[in-house]
Amino acid sequence: MDKGPHGHVERPSWSPYDNNGGTAVAVAGEDYCVIAADTRMSTGFSILTRDHTKLFKVSDKCVLASAGFQADAKTLQKTLDARHQQYQHKHNKEISCPAMAQLLSNTLYYKRFFPYYTFNLLGGLDNEGKGCVYTYDAIGSYERTGYSCQGSGQQLVMPVLDNQLKSASPLVLPAVSSATPLSEAEAMDLIKDTFASAGERDIYTGDAVEIIIINRKGIRKEVLPLKKD
């Protein structure tokens, strides 16, 4: 083994975690939800691939976006998919978005002492057909909101969303709807702008953004190219 610059033998070491970067944004309206994530996958200063999706379609009414460590995100998706399969066999229907939100929280907390290093957003329509966004930390704390963002561009995007969409406190009485007042088209424009902006300053965000739109007509996807630098 080589003697390192500090005079002693240096051996390779490893960490069970990596941060593969990425940003996810979601906005909910009265009758729609838009959820988006960029497609860059990085490690350190290297880009591994420019075309890696961070979005996972749980059902026609529920989509998960995960930034952070890719291997944990993939495992989380496989776990949730298996649980959803069991749910469908048991109940003969697809899981609702609020139920999947609780399941995701439990799944994350189950690994509280060796966590999934993932930063998640769950978007979709609730049982009333209203747009919903659930935002998480890595160990399962979660909250239903009208808009949120997660991942490496969070610090850049969140203040912009707050400025454009300031929502009522969830504590206010009588309760105010968590959905934003934006139209679907306005939400799309806002999300495209946040990714173009995050891509300017965050090296872990770029290449392209995948945007999934869920409304009463169904579910569709758009892809917007971003700068590759």
Binding site: D18, S46, L48, Q70, K74
Partner: peptide, 22 residues
């Protein structure tokens, strides 16, 4: 596709491991 030692994996039209990535 490539799989790394901690399970991170990706597909692409061209891939390289280690020094090859740089």
């Amino acid at each position: 596709g490539v799989v790394g030692m901690i399970g991170a994996a990706y597909e692409d039209d061209h891939v390289a491991t280690g020094f090859g990535n740089h």
